[in-house]
């Protein structure tokens, strides 16, 4: 399961980077913001309503009773319409690097997510997953992989 995504700070608005300063890391001299599932609160960047925003990732703290207490959903579940009652929106989660089981790998654009709202209207995003390709399974030892945008790994 994908547990973190990273995006260079140059691709995020300065004000967002300032708010997330404790999540800024340096890799090879370049600063990047790491959005880690283990961070509190767990957050993800999403393209939503035409702009890049940082929203809550999943419902790990179980603060919302009607939402599943995870950060991922299956593509099959989405396609079967099991989320339709709460009016989900497909969103893109921009990322340069994605981490699964300790392996960081480069992605071209990012991964697909599903955005829903809590009863108070707060946006929450879930990463959409599908069964791993053989290559991905060997690379990360994960049986599920995030749905990548216009890319096969």
């Amino acid at each position: 399961m994908c547990t973190a995504v990273a995006l260079p700070t140059s691709e995020l608005p300065d004000i967002v980077v300032e708010q997330l300063i404790d999540r800024v890391h340096t890799r090879g001299g370049e600063r990047e913001v790491r959005f880690d599932w283990r961070s509190v609160p767990a957050l993800l960047p999403v393209w939503w309503n035409g702009r890049l925003q940082v929203v809550k990732w999943g419902n790990r703290d179980r603060s919302e009773r009607k939402l599943p207490p995870t950060g991922w959903t299956w593509r099959e579940t989405v396609e079967k319409g099991k989320w339709s009652a709460i009016e989900p929106e497909p969103v893109e989660v921009p990322a340069a690097y994605v981490m699964t089981n300790g392996v960081w790998f480069r992605v071209k654009q990012g991964v697909r997510g599903l955005l829903v709202r809590t009863r108070t209207g707060e946006p929450v995003v879930y990463l959409i997953c599908e069964p791993s390709t053989r290559y991905y399974r060997v690379m990360t030892r994960a049986t599920w992989m995030p749905v990548l945008i216009d890319e096969v790994i």
Partner: peptide, 11 residues
Amino acid sequence: AKLCPHGVYVK
């Protein structure tokens, strides 16, 4: 990945 935890891998 153990030797270089922050390494980035590419297909």
